[in-house]
Amino acid sequence: MSYLLHLATFFGIYAILGVSLNLLIGYTGLVWIAHAATFAVGAYAGALFATKLALNFFLAMLLAMLVAGILGSLTGWIFSRLGGDYYMLASVSWNYIVVSVLINWESLTNGPLGISGIPKPSLGELSFAEPTKFFLLTLVLLGIVYAAARFITNSSFGRVIKAIREDEQAAKVFGYNTLMYKVAISGMGAAMAGIAGVLLASYIGFVDPSSFDVMESIFILAIVVVGGFANIRGSLVGALALVLLPELLRFAGFPAEIAAHVRLGLYGLALILFMLYRPQGIIGEYKF
Protein backbone atom coordinates (compact mmCIF):
# COMPACT_ATOMS: atom_id res chain seq x y z
CA MET A 1 0.00 0.00 0.00
CA SER A 2 2.79 2.43 0.91
CA TYR A 3 4.47 1.60 -2.42
CA LEU A 4 1.29 2.52 -4.30
CA LEU A 5 0.93 5.73 -2.29
CA HIS A 6 4.53 6.57 -3.10
CA LEU A 7 3.86 6.09 -6.82
CA ALA A 8 0.61 8.04 -6.62
CA THR A 9 2.40 10.93 -4.89
CA PHE A 10 5.07 10.95 -7.58
CA PHE A 11 2.34 10.84 -10.21
CA GLY A 12 0.82 13.97 -8.63
CA ILE A 13 4.14 15.83 -8.57
CA TYR A 14 4.98 14.95 -12.19
CA ALA A 15 1.43 15.67 -13.34
CA ILE A 16 1.85 19.22 -11.98
CA LEU A 17 5.11 19.48 -13.91
CA GLY A 18 3.49 18.09 -17.07
CA VAL A 19 0.52 20.47 -16.86
CA SER A 20 2.78 23.49 -16.30
CA LEU A 21 5.16 22.54 -19.13
CA ASN A 22 2.22 21.92 -21.45
CA LEU A 23 1.21 25.57 -21.02
CA LEU A 24 4.58 26.56 -22.47
CA ILE A 25 5.16 23.91 -25.13
CA GLY A 26 1.71 22.68 -26.10
CA TYR A 27 -0.21 25.94 -25.86
CA THR A 28 2.38 28.62 -26.59
CA GLY A 29 4.87 26.69 -28.72
CA LEU A 30 7.79 27.57 -26.44
CA VAL A 31 9.97 24.45 -26.47
CA TRP A 32 11.31 24.83 -22.95
CA ILE A 33 13.83 22.07 -22.16
CA ALA A 34 14.68 23.40 -18.70
CA HIS A 35 11.64 22.52 -16.65
CA ALA A 36 13.85 20.55 -14.27
CA ALA A 37 15.68 23.82 -13.56
CA THR A 38 12.37 25.52 -12.74
CA PHE A 39 11.44 22.48 -10.64
CA ALA A 40 14.81 22.89 -8.85
CA VAL A 41 14.23 26.58 -8.17
CA GLY A 42 10.91 25.70 -6.50
CA ALA A 43 12.44 22.80 -4.56
CA TYR A 44 15.46 24.75 -3.33
CA ALA A 45 13.50 27.90 -2.56
CA GLY A 46 10.98 25.84 -0.58
CA ALA A 47 13.76 23.93 1.19
CA LEU A 48 15.65 27.11 2.11
CA PHE A 49 12.55 28.93 3.35
CA ALA A 50 11.56 25.89 5.42
CA THR A 51 15.00 25.07 6.89
CA LYS A 52 16.83 28.40 7.16
CA LEU A 53 13.84 30.64 7.92
CA ALA A 54 11.74 27.89 9.56
CA LEU A 55 8.69 28.98 7.57
CA ASN A 56 5.56 26.85 7.45
CA PHE A 57 5.29 24.62 4.36
CA PHE A 58 2.42 26.58 2.85
CA LEU A 59 4.07 29.96 3.30
CA ALA A 60 7.34 28.51 1.97
CA MET A 61 5.39 27.15 -1.01
CA LEU A 62 3.82 30.53 -1.79
CA LEU A 63 7.20 32.24 -1.60
CA ALA A 64 8.83 29.48 -3.69
CA MET A 65 6.09 29.96 -6.32
CA LEU A 66 6.87 33.66 -6.30
CA VAL A 67 10.62 33.07 -6.72
CA ALA A 68 10.08 30.47 -9.49
CA GLY A 69 7.47 32.69 -11.16
CA ILE A 70 9.68 35.77 -11.18
CA LEU A 71 12.66 33.81 -12.47
CA GLY A 72 10.42 32.11 -15.05
CA SER A 73 9.13 35.50 -16.24
CA LEU A 74 12.67 36.85 -16.42
CA THR A 75 13.99 33.89 -18.43
CA GLY A 76 10.83 34.09 -20.54
CA TRP A 77 11.50 37.75 -21.23
CA ILE A 78 15.12 37.10 -22.20
CA PHE A 79 14.78 33.82 -24.11
CA SER A 80 11.48 34.59 -25.86
CA ARG A 81 13.31 37.14 -27.98
CA LEU A 82 15.13 34.20 -29.53
CA GLY A 83 13.41 32.36 -32.36
CA GLY A 84 12.27 28.68 -32.14
CA ASP A 85 15.42 26.53 -32.16
CA TYR A 86 17.54 29.17 -30.43
CA TYR A 87 14.99 29.42 -27.63
CA MET A 88 15.18 25.66 -27.16
CA LEU A 89 18.99 25.65 -27.11
CA ALA A 90 19.08 28.57 -24.69
CA SER A 91 16.71 26.72 -22.38
CA VAL A 92 18.99 23.65 -22.33
CA SER A 93 21.89 25.94 -21.43
CA TRP A 94 19.77 27.49 -18.68
CA ASN A 95 19.22 24.04 -17.16
CA TYR A 96 23.01 23.53 -17.02
CA ILE A 97 23.53 26.99 -15.52
CA VAL A 98 20.99 26.41 -12.75
CA VAL A 99 22.45 23.01 -11.83
CA SER A 100 25.92 24.50 -11.90
CA VAL A 101 24.83 27.31 -9.56
CA LEU A 102 23.24 24.76 -7.19
CA ILE A 103 26.49 22.78 -7.12
CA ASN A 104 28.82 25.74 -6.73
CA TRP A 105 26.94 28.19 -4.48
CA GLU A 106 27.79 26.09 -1.46
CA SER A 107 27.13 28.77 1.17
CA LEU A 108 23.47 28.83 0.15
CA THR A 109 22.74 25.40 -1.36
CA ASN A 110 25.26 23.22 0.45
CA GLY A 111 26.65 22.26 -2.96
CA PRO A 112 26.54 18.64 -4.13
CA LEU A 113 25.58 17.47 -0.63
CA GLY A 114 22.24 19.21 -0.96
CA ILE A 115 19.83 20.32 1.76
CA SER A 116 18.42 17.79 4.22
CA GLY A 117 15.99 17.90 7.10
CA ILE A 118 13.22 19.56 5.11
CA PRO A 119 10.09 19.31 7.26
CA LYS A 120 6.83 17.71 6.20
CA PRO A 121 3.83 20.01 5.67
CA SER A 122 1.61 20.94 8.55
CA LEU A 123 -1.24 23.35 9.12
CA GLY A 124 -1.72 24.08 12.81
CA GLU A 125 -2.36 20.72 14.47
CA LEU A 126 -2.88 18.98 11.14
CA SER A 127 0.25 17.21 9.91
CA PHE A 128 0.65 15.82 6.41
CA ALA A 129 3.64 13.65 7.35
CA GLU A 130 1.71 10.42 7.01
CA PRO A 131 1.91 9.11 3.35
CA THR A 132 -1.86 9.03 2.79
CA LYS A 133 -2.25 12.62 3.95
CA PHE A 134 0.75 13.77 1.92
CA PHE A 135 -0.75 12.11 -1.15
CA LEU A 136 -4.10 13.81 -0.52
CA LEU A 137 -2.32 17.16 -0.19
CA THR A 138 -0.51 16.49 -3.48
CA LEU A 139 -3.84 15.61 -5.07
CA VAL A 140 -5.44 18.84 -3.83
CA LEU A 141 -2.53 20.92 -5.16
CA LEU A 142 -2.70 19.05 -8.48
CA GLY A 143 -6.42 19.88 -8.56
CA ILE A 144 -5.68 23.56 -7.99
CA VAL A 145 -2.99 23.60 -10.70
CA TYR A 146 -5.32 21.74 -13.08
CA ALA A 147 -8.15 24.22 -12.44
CA ALA A 148 -5.78 27.18 -12.87
CA ALA A 149 -4.48 25.77 -16.16
CA ARG A 150 -8.05 25.20 -17.39
CA PHE A 151 -8.96 28.75 -16.39
CA ILE A 152 -5.98 30.13 -18.32
CA THR A 153 -6.49 28.03 -21.44
CA ASN A 154 -10.27 28.59 -21.59
CA SER A 155 -9.88 32.37 -21.38
CA SER A 156 -9.16 34.79 -24.21
CA PHE A 157 -5.55 34.64 -22.98
CA GLY A 158 -5.54 30.92 -23.85
CA ARG A 159 -6.66 31.68 -27.39
CA VAL A 160 -3.94 34.29 -27.77
CA ILE A 161 -1.11 31.99 -26.66
CA LYS A 162 -2.35 29.34 -29.10
CA ALA A 163 -2.35 31.97 -31.84
CA ILE A 164 1.22 32.92 -30.88
CA ARG A 165 2.16 29.26 -31.22
CA GLU A 166 0.62 29.22 -34.71
CA ASP A 167 2.03 32.47 -36.08
CA GLU A 168 3.50 35.04 -33.73
CA GLN A 169 4.02 37.71 -36.38
CA ALA A 170 0.42 37.48 -37.51
CA ALA A 171 -0.71 37.68 -33.88
CA LYS A 172 1.32 40.87 -33.45
CA VAL A 173 -0.31 42.75 -36.29
CA PHE A 174 -3.67 42.18 -34.63
CA GLY A 175 -2.55 44.32 -31.72
CA TYR A 176 -1.19 41.76 -29.28
CA ASN A 177 2.09 42.41 -27.51
CA THR A 178 3.17 38.79 -27.88
CA LEU A 179 6.31 39.19 -25.78
CA MET A 180 4.23 40.13 -22.74
CA TYR A 181 2.02 37.08 -23.28
CA LYS A 182 5.09 34.83 -23.44
CA VAL A 183 6.54 36.43 -20.31
CA ALA A 184 3.22 35.96 -18.49
CA ILE A 185 2.77 32.30 -19.43
CA SER A 186 6.44 31.58 -18.63
CA GLY A 187 5.91 33.05 -15.16
CA MET A 188 2.65 31.19 -14.57
CA GLY A 189 4.10 27.86 -15.74
CA ALA A 190 7.17 28.35 -13.56
CA ALA A 191 5.09 29.20 -10.48
CA MET A 192 3.14 25.95 -10.97
CA ALA A 193 6.38 23.98 -11.39
CA GLY A 194 7.52 25.65 -8.16
CA ILE A 195 4.65 23.90 -6.34
CA ALA A 196 5.92 20.55 -7.63
CA GLY A 197 9.42 21.43 -6.43
CA VAL A 198 8.27 22.27 -2.91
CA LEU A 199 6.22 19.09 -2.78
CA LEU A 200 9.20 16.97 -3.84
CA ALA A 201 11.54 18.66 -1.34
CA SER A 202 9.13 18.13 1.50
CA TYR A 203 8.18 14.60 0.47
CA ILE A 204 11.76 13.33 0.21
CA GLY A 205 12.99 15.62 3.00
CA PHE A 206 16.11 16.28 0.95
CA VAL A 207 17.14 18.02 -2.29
CA ASP A 208 20.39 17.85 -4.22
CA PRO A 209 21.42 19.09 -7.68
CA SER A 210 21.58 15.63 -9.25
CA SER A 211 17.77 15.40 -9.29
CA PHE A 212 17.41 18.31 -11.70
CA ASP A 213 19.71 17.69 -14.64
CA VAL A 214 18.74 17.94 -18.32
CA MET A 215 17.65 14.28 -18.34
CA GLU A 216 14.97 15.24 -15.84
CA SER A 217 13.83 18.00 -18.19
CA ILE A 218 13.66 15.46 -21.02
CA PHE A 219 11.58 13.21 -18.78
CA ILE A 220 9.09 16.01 -18.09
CA LEU A 221 9.06 16.82 -21.81
CA ALA A 222 8.26 13.15 -22.50
CA ILE A 223 5.23 13.42 -20.20
CA VAL A 224 3.87 16.23 -22.39
CA VAL A 225 4.78 14.51 -25.67
CA VAL A 226 3.21 11.19 -24.70
CA GLY A 227 0.13 12.65 -22.99
CA GLY A 228 -0.58 15.20 -25.66
CA PHE A 229 0.16 18.80 -26.60
CA ALA A 230 -2.31 21.52 -25.75
CA ASN A 231 -4.51 19.28 -23.63
CA ILE A 232 -4.32 19.61 -19.85
CA ARG A 233 -5.79 16.15 -19.29
CA GLY A 234 -3.11 14.84 -21.64
CA SER A 235 -0.44 15.80 -19.13
CA LEU A 236 -2.20 13.73 -16.48
CA VAL A 237 -2.30 10.78 -18.89
CA GLY A 238 1.39 11.32 -19.75
CA ALA A 239 2.40 11.46 -16.08
CA LEU A 240 0.39 8.33 -15.39
CA ALA A 241 2.05 6.49 -18.29
CA LEU A 242 5.61 7.58 -17.63
CA VAL A 243 5.62 7.47 -13.83
CA LEU A 244 3.65 4.31 -13.31
CA LEU A 245 4.24 2.05 -16.32
CA PRO A 246 8.05 1.86 -16.02
CA GLU A 247 7.47 0.43 -12.55
CA LEU A 248 6.37 -2.71 -14.37
CA LEU A 249 10.05 -3.19 -15.18
CA ARG A 250 10.57 -4.00 -11.54
CA PHE A 251 8.42 -7.06 -12.05
CA ALA A 252 10.03 -7.98 -15.38
CA GLY A 253 13.07 -9.44 -13.67
CA PHE A 254 15.68 -6.82 -14.72
CA PRO A 255 18.50 -6.34 -12.20
CA ALA A 256 18.21 -2.91 -10.52
CA GLU A 257 21.33 -1.49 -12.19
CA ILE A 258 20.03 -2.42 -15.67
CA ALA A 259 16.40 -1.42 -15.01
CA ALA A 260 17.34 2.26 -14.64
CA HIS A 261 19.02 2.27 -18.06
CA VAL A 262 16.16 0.35 -19.65
CA ARG A 263 13.76 2.89 -18.22
CA LEU A 264 15.70 5.79 -19.80
CA GLY A 265 15.81 3.86 -23.07
CA LEU A 266 12.05 3.40 -22.92
CA TYR A 267 11.50 7.14 -22.45
CA GLY A 268 13.67 7.85 -25.49
CA LEU A 269 11.90 5.19 -27.51
CA ALA A 270 8.51 6.58 -26.48
CA LEU A 271 9.54 10.09 -27.64
CA ILE A 272 10.71 8.78 -31.03
CA LEU A 273 7.65 6.58 -31.61
CA PHE A 274 5.20 9.32 -30.63
CA MET A 275 6.93 11.89 -32.83
CA LEU A 276 6.79 9.45 -35.74
CA TYR A 277 3.33 7.96 -35.39
CA ARG A 278 1.31 10.13 -33.01
CA PRO A 279 2.85 13.62 -32.98
CA GLN A 280 -0.04 15.11 -31.02
CA GLY A 281 0.37 12.56 -28.19
CA ILE A 282 -2.31 10.26 -26.77
CA ILE A 283 -5.06 12.90 -26.41
CA GLY A 284 -3.28 15.99 -27.70
CA GLU A 285 -4.90 18.77 -29.71
CA TYR A 286 -1.84 20.10 -31.46
CA LYS A 287 0.69 18.61 -33.86
CA PHE A 288 4.19 20.05 -34.05
Binding site: I152, S155, S156, F157, V160, N177, A184
Partner: peptide, 11 residues
Protein backbone atom coordinates in the same frame (compact mmCIF):
# COMPACT_ATOMS: atom_id res chain seq x y z
CA UNK B 1 -5.57 42.78 -26.22
CA UNK B 2 -4.09 43.25 -22.73
CA UNK B 3 -2.56 40.31 -20.84
CA UNK B 4 -4.64 40.73 -17.68
CA UNK B 5 -7.78 41.71 -19.53
CA UNK B 6 -7.53 38.61 -21.72
CA UNK B 7 -6.79 36.36 -18.74
CA UNK B 8 -10.01 37.32 -17.02
CA UNK B 9 -12.10 37.44 -20.17
CA UNK B 10 -14.05 34.72 -21.88
CA UNK B 11 -15.69 35.55 -25.18
Amino acid sequence: RGVFGALFEKH
